[in-house]
Amino acid sequence: MARVRVRFAKRGRLRFLSHRDIARTFERGLRRARIPVAFSAGFSPHPRVSWVGAAPTGAASEAEYFEVALSAPMEPEQVRAELDAALPPGLDVLHCVAADSPPLPDRIDASRWRLRMPGAAIADLDVAVAELLGRESLTVERATKDGRRRVDVREAVVWAVCRAENDTCAILDVVVRHTTPAVRPDDVLTALSAVAVLSVPVPPEPTRLEQGRLREDGTLADPLVPDRDEAARLVGQLEA
């Protein structure tokens, strides 16, 4: 059965969608776009869509992924265009590829985040980042539905750099390993505030820029590239 891997963005005001909101909206978008989605068997059949770790509610993202099984073949580019047209602006389908290689989750173990921090002083942020990176470990607590959970932020952070967007806004770029439980942008912020004096007057706006396999140099490998390469190889064979 054909499967398609999809990379999409969650932008603007739609960053406030939760993972469940997104899943529902995509299921309806797939129906609206008349994509031939395969359904699970059983008493209450569900569309066969598998999600890979979702950006938290309130976080924007340029790199969210899922995989969908099709009951009939359809060109990935056609899936992309029609699905994108059926979704509200702000949920934007960026790439679709036919799934030809090992499972998607095996190719994603880290994220690169960008946090816009209006009102934060770059000098303070500089100090906080250096302080955090200098630690061996830094554990923060987060309130969840099931009580408080502790995560080691330092262990998960691969690297972090900051710069000033302008006089009134600092930018933090950070690469975080996917751990269990996951370290989220607000955890990073909690950690930075714990190690230094850092005033964040307005909630920061986090955006996930990339997900993928962490390379030794700290960059991330695009998880859809192997599928694209495989597709190119097959096309090459056919043409040859």
């Binding site: 031939p36 395969a38 009951s71 009939a72």
Partner: peptide
């Protein structure tokens, strides 16, 4: 209808689904 495509689920995937 929406949800039934040319290769409808019934022919592409027999069985309960």
């Amino acid at each position: 209808p929406v949800g039934r495509t040319d290769a409808s689920a019934a022919s592409a995937e027999p069985g309960p689904a």
